[in-house]
Write a protein that binds this DNA or RNA. Sequence first.
DNA 1: TAGTTTTAAGTTTTT
DNA 2: CTTAAAACTA
Length: 762
Amino acid sequence: MDPSYLDILNPEQRKAVLHEGLDGRDRPGGPWKNLTARRPLLILAGAGSGKTRVITTKIAYLIRERGVDPRSIMAVTFTNKAAREMAARARLIENRASAAMIRTFHSFGAWFLRRHAALAGLDSGFVIYDDDDMVSLLGTVMEDASKAELRETAALIARAKDFFLSPEDPELDRISCHDRFRKNYAKYEEKLQKIGNVDFGDLIQKPLKLLEDNPDLARRFHDRFTVIMVDEYQDSNAAQFKLLSRMAGGPETYLCVVGDDDQSIYRFRGADVKNILRFSDHFPGTEIIRLERNYRSFSQILALASSVVDHNCGRLGKTLRAERGAGKLPTLAFLANQDEEAAFCAELVERSVRTGKAKGYSDWAILYRTNAQSLGFETELLHRSIPYKVVGSLKFYQREEIKDALALLALLLNPRDEVAFRRIINKPARGIGAVALDRILKALYGASPSGGGLVDIAKELSLSAKAAAGIKSFAAVMDRAAAVLGGASPPPYRDPPIRYGEGLSACVGSLIIDSALAEYHGFHDEINGLQRIGNLQELVDASSNYKGGREGLVEFMEHIELDRSIDADAENHDSVTLITLHNTKGLEFPRVIITGLEQGVFPRDDKTGDDLEEERRLFYVGATRAMEELYLCSCTFRRVYGRTSPMPPSLFLYEADKTMLEVIGQAPAGFGKSPRQPWRGREQGVFAFGSPSGGAGLKMSSDKRWKQGDRIFHDDQGYGAVIDITEGDDGPVILVRFDNGQEKRFLSFHQSGNYMKIGAGD
DNA sequence: TAGTTTTAAGTTTTT
DNA sequence: CTTAAAACTA
């Protein structure tokens, strides 16, 4: 093959591809192996500067020109979509790239953990718990907690794991300084370990621990993976950084990361921009290459996007040059309400396709802040028969019937899965109530922990006749399913409610029927006119793409757990893309509409400080997806909770460079002038620190704890200072002396950024 | 006690 | 307008 794939690169891109970290000794032709330490490479790549092209080309180049074994190359990203695209594009240049390890961080973690499961005290068929499963499990250790409380604790545990903090870690106070949280976290961990499953955080944590505790394993790892690349590095969190450092710690490992600090949008799940800002401090000798030529967007789109993100403080700052012409001025449309907004979008799409200005529906993407907003657009597009696809809506796997079916499968893989067992053991009713369930679980976690599964344990107990019969029939169901998984043919059914075919679907389909789940949900369908059987059928159909047997089932489950998007065959269909702003990262579209640019929606009202900066970056990410045309929509009224209320335009619209916008529709009075904070929180009882203490690096720890003398602001009382802190049942209670002389106590329960919401104390 | 009806509460963003 | 918790009925 000719090296023309290198010719299309610009000088900086080419430099990044050819870089080998050998101080001028980058000699194509020489051997890649047998070398001492290589300098790491940090590629600071602005939006649309071709960073995916650089990474994929580099992978291909290493394999083809430098004789690197594809199996020794690892490339990780943070989203499934990005991983898929990277793998596809690398393979397009060099077919052997398909043997490279191109995955998301979490998917790699799962792969690694399954291969060394025994070392981590796990079975290789472990199930990955999602957020809902975490909440369910927490519910079993926090007896009288409300759902909201459980959700909050689950989120905190996930955050703790993002920072690689164990329940014992003194630094855990950074997440929450409640002693109760520490205890619940510890109990949760203990139970998860006993069950033998993992959560998302464990997919990073546990591989890291394995590498730390097993020098032998680490050595073998370093022998295998000599090239490690990370895309979207600005979205890595502390745990991922630690894992990466460990993985790249081999004597020969070459590390190359790519990212853009302006596109860091995952702070809420622990991502830390500092990882990229301080990369060269952690990896001495790092070489930095900047990609600052934007090939994607017309310059006026870029100018608009930049004018907003320029309002951020903590950034490296870069000069992104547009290589394309000026193009059409971005349009800002003020619409009456969200129905008008949907109609406006549909109209734009329809007209452009009809007049031939757009190549097709797939030219278009409609972007929104929250998944809930997709509904209005779906309705409108459906009504007008405009084809569309919704990216990343996870509704399907949230459905009751689907979760039930997955619980059955999870139990098949891990018979000790308490969460799954609880979910389906009495569904449909098998006479196993709270009493029986309690006894079974006591036996599982009892003094002499048995190695058997929950069903086996239950069979040994002397339960009530009704419960014993229920267990017996359920055990038979699971045994038959295990046999089918092992290759036996499923029991015969006449007129089955679910059809199943080859591969894994024989097991999945027959289990759903055999367990009477199909019958159960079919009944509900008839009563309530639902589509549950149809959904179950869809799940069974999806499973037919996997080979039968335990391996296939593990693969199927893992795919569902790690990648809940369902865009498999919609790829080549010509349709409009409906997508959240977060999900657009790494994608591009000729025509983009950013919707819901209203204060309270985007950005949300409670965003301040660093969180507000993140929303601004989110706007930047969304706007820079557009190649040719960009539209912004803002509604003057919006229905929220069923009630219609007036919406002020988004702060970002005030910040945007108006010379880069063509405004259409009725702009609210006052728009265009300098804003007098129309977006200020109307909420009562909102606190703000007068001056956030501590430098940026210590922000988290200093924010999470009250100190005497902290200045605060209260909507009713004005400015004041914390004069005393006591530990209450529900967390710290602060005594505040306001400047007006009043003293009041407050119970703090939630805090984010520089603001603190408080509930009235005694 | 299980399943259904009534009433109250409450929207991020993803692996 | 949807979803979770409380109240209610069979």
